[in-house]
Amino acid sequence: MTQTETQSQSRRPKLASSTIPVLAVLAVLLVALAFAGSAYQEPAGYLALLKRAAPLMILAIGQYFVIVSGGFDLSVGSLVTAEVVIAARLIDGDESATLWVMLLMLGIGAFVGLVNGAITTRLLVPSFIVTLGMLLVLDGAVFLWTGGAPRGALSDSFRTVGRQGIDGVPVIGQLPWSVVVLAVIVVLAVLFMRSPTGRTLLAVGDNETAVWLGGGRVERLRTLAFVLSGLSAAVAAILLGGFAGVSAQVGDGLEFRVITAVVLGGVVLGGGRGSVVAAMAGALTLESLFSLLNLLGVAGGLESTVQGVIIIAAVAYAAVNWRRKKP
């Protein structure tokens, strides 16, 4: 066999090869958008796309942590709805309540994640079931609390984060707050995945026995992934609430959309494989695709069909690729 002595210079894995396909698809879509709609012939058009996509991208980052460690989080959609409805009711137009309610939302997100994680790791219920149960619990709780129609209203300053931006930025005009929030979270996520804890989380999804025997705290790490996912839902709720306003349907279907996005990013279900940047790129790709279909006049109802095709195709692509790669 022609093998050479270890000589690679890089200390960290470079851009994983699994990231390249999704970036290629994304590039094609972004170019296609420019041809399909005049709005995309200026930076502002793409910025608007990014603003629209920011909540899904943030959710994708949260979901990535859970999937890569070998689980699923189906509860994020309901959690987003619950957070928005709770925020509207607690704030009820009162500006001074904005900050503490936002903090409370993060707390609730983390708590729901903690419960998901604790049940998964301590009671050994598969995360698929735990988070499906959590989805139903949250759905029911929201309905019970609101009677079907949410009450209250978000404050203007709350909605600023989702709607407004920093004005007077050269070239692009307005830099949306949501894009700033997204950028900060992306940087934090990338740094986290380079940290010892992040590397170990990835290894947990691959071989948790090896991590345990290597001195890792497997249960804590998995729980941490759910907490991060819950936090990502809280941030997404803050952005979505500001962007779209209060409704009891704000988070509907987000759990499936975000899993589609992560899988589209080449992150392998079952864990141990894929990059956080790719997961996020998957979310942007999905959002771009929907924008493109919208511009081309394809009926909105087709969105879920497209999503279904994508999730099956992406997983099939990964599986087939794999079999060929086996030595």
Binding site: P13, S195, P196, T197, T200, A203, N207, T209, L213, G215
Partner: peptide, 24 residues
């Protein structure tokens, strides 16, 4: 089954214990 995370890189496996047990 117990020693390696097979789908991770040589680098990450070399750092496995250091990362998992010490976070150094």
């Amino acid at each position: 089954g117990e020693g390696l995370a097979l789908r991770q890189s040589v680098h990450d496996n070399t750092m496995l214990v250091r990362n998992a047990a010490f976070g150094r």
